[in-house]
C-alpha cells in the first residue's frame, strides 16, 4: 500500500467507528427508558455522526476519487467497512448499550487525546474537536456503569452480564497491524498498545466502585479493522443504506 492508501485506511477506521456506533445509538431514538436518556443517546449519536463527516470527508479527499462522506457511508459494502467489532454489537438492553459505550468511550478518549498531537495537522484538528465531545460521552457512560452496577440486584446482574459478553470485543482496540504501525512510524497515530494500561486502569477503578468484576483476560475477537465483520453489520447497513441504494442520489 502507498502512503496515501495507508492514510485512507486509517481514516476509514476512525470514521467507521463513529458512524456505526452513531447509527446504533440512533436506533434507541424513541425507545429509551426515560426522555432524558432518549435525548442523551441521540445527542451522543449526533456528535458521532458529526465526527464521521469530518473523518470520512478527509478520507475521501485523501483517496482522491471523488468520494465524500456520504458516498463512503452509503455506498460501501460490509467488507469495505473498517470499524471495530465492538461498535457493531447489538444494543441489547440499556445496560448492554451503556457497557458497550463505556468500553468504547474510554478508548476513544485516549485515542483522540493522542491524535491531537498527530503530525498530520488535519487529523490533529479533528481529534481536538472530537475530544471535547467524547469527554462528556465518557463521563456519562461511566456514571451509568456505577449506577447500574451498584444499583439493584437486577441492574447489577444485567450490567455484569453485559461486561462479560462484550469483553472479548475489546482486545482488538489495542492491537496494531501494519496500517497502525505505518501511522506510528510517521508520527500520525499512537501506539495502540500504549492505550491499554490507562484504559484498563479506568475499567478497574470503575468496576470496583460499581461492585462489578472484570472478566479475566482471554481470547479476543478480531477482524473488524480488516473488514471481517460479525453478521450484525450487514443488518445495520441494510437499514443505514436503504434509501441511497433504492433511490440513488436522493436528496432533501
Amino acid at each position: 500500500m502507498s502512503g496515501q492508501e495507508v492514510l485512507f485506511e486509517y481514516l476509514l477506521r476512525l470514521g467507521d467507528n463513529a458512524l456505526i456506533l452513531g447509527h446504533r445509538l440512533s436506533e434507541w431514538c424513541g425507545h429509551s427508558p426515560a426522555l432524558e436518556e432518549d435525548l442523551a443517546l441521540s445527542n451522543v449519536a449526533l456528535d458521532l455522526i458529526g465526527q464521521t463527516q469530518l473523518w470520512l470527508n478527509l478520507a475521501g479527499e485523501i483517496e482522491g476519487k471523488g468520494r465524500d462522506a456520504d458516498k463512503l457511508a452509503y455506498l460501501r459494502d460490509a467488507r469495505d467497512f473498517r470499524n471495530l467489532l465492538l461498535v457493531e454489537q447489538p444494543n441489547g438492553n440499556f445496560a448492554a448499550t451503556m457497557a458497550r459505550q463505556f468500553h468504547f468511550d474510554a478508548w476513544h478518549y485516549l485515542l483522540l487525546r493522542e491524535l491531537t498531537g498527530s503530525k498530520d495537522a488535519r487529523i490533529a484538528e479533528i481529534a481536538a474537536k472530537g475530544l471535547k465531545e467524547v469527554t462528556y460521552h465518557l463521563e456519562r457512560s461511566r456514571d451509568w456503569i456505577l449506577r447500574l452496577g451498584d444499583g439493584t440486584e437486577e441492574s447489577h446482574r444485567r450490567m455484569q452480564a453485559a461486561i462479560d459478553d462484550l469483553w472479548m470485543y475489546t482486545g482488538e482496540m489495542f492491537e496494531s497491524d501494519e496500517v497502525d504501525q505505518a501511522m506510528m512510524r510517521e508520527g500520525i497515530g499512537p501506539d495502540l498498545a500504549s492505550l491499554h494500561e490507562p484504559w484498563l486502569g479506568l475499567m478497574r477503578s470503575t468496576a470496583e466502585e460499581a461492585t462489578l468484576t472484570l472478566p479475566q483476560p482471554g481470547w479476543a475477537q478480531r477482524g473488524g479493522k480488516r473488514g471481517m465483520h460479525s453478521e450484525h453489520l450487514g443488518y445495520i447497513l441494510a437499514d443505514l443504506q436503504f434509501l441511497q441504494r433504492a433511490y440513488p442520489n436522493a436528496t432533501w
Binding site: 435525548l39 442523551a40 465531545e133 463521563e139 456519562r140
Partner: peptide, 13 residues
Amino acid sequence: RISEFGSTPCKAQ
C-alpha cells in the same frame, strides 16, 4: 443534574 445532555448537544439538564 438530571442529565449530561439536554435539548441540544451544548446543554445539560
